[in-house]
Amino acid sequence: MSETAIPALPPRRLSWPAFLRRKARPESLHGIKSSGFAGQVLPLVLLAPQLVILLMFFFIPAIRGLAQAFLLQDPFGQEVHFVGLENITALLRSAEYWESLRLSVNFTLATTALTFGVGLLLAFATDRVARGRTAYRAVLLLPYAIAPAIAGFVWAFLFNPIVGPAAALLHALGIAWDPNRSGDDALLLVILTASWKHLCYDYIFLVAALGSVPRSVIEAAAVDGARPLRRFFWIVLPMIAPTVFFLLVMNTVYGLFETFAIIDATTRGGPAAATNILVYKVYVDGFVNLDLGSSAAQSVLLMIFAISLTVIQFRLIERRISYDVSQ
């Protein structure tokens, strides 16, 4: 690879960043290298460990679990009634369920945006500073190391309207902060907590991705007179677009599936179900209330929703990503 590997600096007036504008080569659209290896057996051998574990500990249990969606069964499994789509239609008829779906969408959008935005800012700053990079990286990763139940508790403590220092600060600023009675405050609190917890995740992958950007590219752009921020948005960001796309998908998955522990520690879905997002509802109905049928039905719907969302993300966004850094 020679000097041609350095992307040309785009003209100053451009409406879209390159990674949205540029059409990718068809090979990467399908997620495969244009230069690869031949063989039908070796790839299957390589995939075997993953697939065997998935089959044994995911697919078989998942199918057996999801079958509950069409049953009415007691937790100990001695009485089983087949009820068809009743569990699902009961959800679709319930106003609480639709409200929960609406909340989930808002919650996921907000945490995705917040996590990614702040993570990108911090990763950019970390990549840029010459000194102390290792220390910043280590310190910013610390929150990820604390047990989630403890993290949630401490966060809830900080913003507790009666005893929390952060809440006291808000009160001093004249903000009537009370997540115990105001649903909006509670939603804001869970968004903040969930974003804080997931921030490290986005941050570390962005740091890793920025680390992979060839220095020669940046230097060439600098020689061409591009200012740092401009360089970042027009050259570096397109080059790490694969990671950005990865994080976008993973943040959505996080918001939709992995936040029940945070909710449980900060608001318990309340007040008045104001933070009762879908995955928390699945948790309460299935795990706490032992209503296996409804919880499985909710999981089926949630799964359909999440898969559709992911397919849309792949269709709409991935095809605009160029995986070819040497283009």
Binding site: V154, A156, F157, F159, N160, I162, V163, T267, P271
Partner: peptide
């Protein structure tokens, strides 16, 4: 009672008992 400040919920992050035992 809640509207008039006679009753509060502790919420998460602090045990209701701790609010009482701290004299609040």
């Amino acid at each position: 009672w809640m509207d008039d400040g006679l009753l509060q919920t502790a919420g998460q992050g602090v045990a209701a008992a701790a609010v009482f035992t701290s004299g609040r």
